[in-house]
Design a protein around this nucleic acid. Structure first.
Lengths: 185, 185
DNA sequence: ATTATCTATAGATCTATAGATAATGC
DNA sequence: ATTATCTATAGATCTATAGATAATGC
């Protein structure tokens, strides 16, 4: 059942999309090649005609997840009156907390990338820089805007990962609320 | 080469110590039973006389790493004039960033615990509550001290994990400095 | 003829167990 | 006699490859 070249490109994309979701949900180490291929509607044997290795897919999937995070930021803020509020309210929402597979890769993969290879760390740094630049703009630019942007984004990431790790829903909500309402001030 | 009961208890502790360090360095999934036992100076066969399963060791090692984080906080702050500054300065130091295996487990294991089982999440929540209570005290108590404690700790955790994940040393230092100097204000 | 995917499997790695060994402790 | 650790290995799982199949595209 061979597909056309165009179909193959779509298949490739589908594998990367599935993987980019699974690694945010399960971490970089857990999802196996067979699991990812099955979720993409394929058998695992064909995998190596698309990727040189599992590591290669993970790197592509990480890059895709990070770029998707950037597109999300623009969707949320491009037309917003108060872009910082729009972004922070989504970032620290229960919806975002409860759907890591569709959420910010900078938060979901922070610890994994900290232990990862150069390709992962480089993609991660590029996306973090984009986040910081955007927040800097939201904060009006000026003298200490970059420093404040870094502080605000650190609090958002920290609040989100903490809210996901605790087993007490009330505490989890409290964390989201506390960081959201202060908005780093 | 049998050891005494007392020796066995020490061996058990040594295995847990090694594991608590390795999981902070490599993540919860990576270090294998054989690797941990070898680092503890043992062969892997004896492992199951100490633990029911690998999961069981990981849970004990996570609990140990979290409690160690609490002891560290007290060492740093019990005699400090400005306990918040003493804690934040260590938390966001290059030394802490560069030695995750000996550092705060709440940061090193945040994403892993978010994907983990109830035992891990429960231990994590208990340690996070202790951190918050202590920071609340450092902030002088009062009306909004708890909310501010949550905000400050979120920024510390976020700043640390971001500084570890990026591949640019200058940016990494900048993140530590930005969050440290603002101290959540 | 080429190639995208499938079936089948080799080889490596990892958890867990079985049985042997040798020192402890009743 | 009991038991802490060791050697050896079973069984499962995972990455990667080989060869077959069937549709594309020169």
């Amino acid at each position: 059942m061979r597909q056309s070249r165009e179909e193959k490109a779509k298949t490739h994309e589908r594998i990367v999309d599935v993987a980019s979701r699974r690694i945010r949900e399960q971490g970089i180490d857990r999802p196996g090649v067979a699991e990812i291929m099955e979720a993409a509607g394929l058998t695992h044997g064909g995998f190596y005609k698309h990727f040189a290795s599992r590591d290669d897919l993970i790197a592509e999937a990480t890059e895709e997840a990070l770029e998707r995070s950037d597109r999300r930021l623009h969707e949320l803020t491009d037309d917003a009156d108060d872009p910082l509020a729009a972004f922070a309210d989504w970032y620290l929402s229960a919806e975002h907390r409860d759907a890591p597979g569709a959420g910010c890769a900078v938060a979901a993969l922070a610890d994994d990338v900290g232990r990862g290879n150069d390709r992962l760390r480089s993609a991660y740094r590029r996306q973090l820089e984009r986040y910081i630049e955007n927040l800097e703009g939201f904060l009006g630019g000026g003298e200490e805007a970059r420093e404040r942007a870094i502080l605000v984004f650190s609090a958002l990431v920290g609040g989100l990962v903490l809210s996901r790790a605790v087993d007490d829903p009330a505490l989890s909500d409290e964390i989201l609320r506390a960081v959201r309402e202060s908005r780093g001030s």
